[in-house]
């Protein structure tokens, strides 16, 4: 069949392209150019594309498949970077990779793949897709340490039908690298990508400052009774549950609440957590209904047993044990390895 492979220039998606080609499919590699690399590294005259796009092209050459670069800068800017800064300015802790998956990879790119007459789109995500009795199911990757299902919860059922995730079955990244080496791909030893691709230096405050300088204005750190304990250098530097960057007067305390309107960071003793969590924009991968499931509230988090009650386009989680939930992060529902759905924490 005709398959579009989303190629980032990294080892994972390169191997996916190779596996698809090896399986005899007609493979079309597509790389989304998400931002101007030259501008991101602050070097005048640097190519807009950067090494990753070059690598993706060389892999495509090696595999003998077609490859295209799609200009997605404007879309990425608006749906991911601006939204990222706005989220921080709203006192939340965003997950830009989810927004990128949702709007660019499984949104625009998937639409383009359909438009080109492809029958499927494959990506290098570590997650598994099974044909279930009621359509495609999303499951955690075999390698739990690589599992990316939490980042993919917003993939709709319709999109999931069209997707393929060949890497979810591999036991380790080492195995994927070995395949890359065996295929003769130069990216076999390439380092893993950073957490947030558009923040090359690793500090996101610069991005927030550029788009939402108001989120980096100083404000008060207050106790839950309103006493001012000290000052902070911008609400964007805090997330719920954080203990770092608090004044000495707030030792042993954590962030309880971020108030964008008054620019106040409310702190309190750690341990007191909420048993109910409200979610917005819930994506269901099963028929929406009240159910019991294990919920993951952060990318690296243990599972929390909960009762989930649909509520319009959102849902309410009733956790068996109170837990820390940071607004803007995702809450993803699992039944064993299967992803049942998820939403954004309000």
């Amino acid at each position: 069949m005709k398959v579009v492979v989303a190629m980032s220039g990294g080892v994972d998606s390169s191997v996916v392209a190779g596996l698809m080609a090896r399986a005899g499919h007609e493979v079309i590699g597509v790389t989304l150019q998400l931002y101007d690399h030259g501008a991101a590294v602050g070097r005048k005259g640097a190519c807009c594309a950067g090494q990753d796009i070059h690598d993706a092209k060389r892999v495509a050459d090696r595999l003998g498949i077609a490859h295209y670069v799609i200009d997605s800068e404007a879309r990425f800017q608006q749906s991911v970077i601006s939204a990222f800064a706005d989220s921080y300015a709203g006192g939340q802790t965003p997950v830009p990779c989810i927004a990128c998956n949702q709007h660019l990879k499984f949104g625009d790119l998937l639409e383009m793949a359909r438009g080109l007459g492809a029958e499927a789109m494959a990506t290098g995500h570590y997650v598994r897709r099974f044909e279930g009795p009621n359509g495609a199911e999303m499951h955690k990757a075999v390698d739990d340490s690589r599992d990316q299902s939490w980042f993919l919860f917003a993939t709709t059922r319709e999109q999931l039908e069209f997707c393929r995730f060949p890497l979810g079955d591999y036991a380790s990244k080492a195995e994927v690298r070995a395949i890359a080496a065996e295929m003769g791909l130069a990216v076999a030893d390439k380092a893993d990508s950073q957490d947030i691709c558009f923040v090359p230096s690793g500090t996101y405050a610069g991005i927030v400052e550029k788009y939402r300088p108001d989120a980096l204005e100083a404000g008060d750190v207050v106790a839950e009774d309103g006493r001012v304990l000290g000052q902070h250098q911008g609400i964007a530097r805090y997330t719920i549950g954080q203990a770092k960057r608090l004044p000495d007067t707030a030792a042993h305390m954590v962030v309880k609440k971020i108030e964008p309107g008054t620019r106040r960071i409310v702190v309190g003793p750690r341990g007191v957590q909420s048993p109910t969590v409200r979610l917005r924009d819930v994506n269901w991968l099963v028929e929406p209904r009240e159910l019991h499931a294990a919920v993951k509230l952060r990318a690296r988090d243990t599972l929390h047993p909960a009762r989930i009650v649909p509520d319009g386009s959102g849902a309410v989680l009733h956790l068996e044990e109170p837990a820390l939930a940071a607004p803007g992060q995702a809450a993803v529902f699992y039944d064993g390895t299967r992803v049942l759905g998820g939403g954004f924490i309000l």
Binding site: I28, Q33, C47, C48, A49, K57, A66, V69, L116, G117
Partner: peptide, 18 residues
Amino acid sequence: DMAGIAVSAGSACSSGKV
């Protein structure tokens, strides 16, 4: 291109991005 017709658009960067 998939139909076997080679044309171009705008000014292509060395990346091939249109």
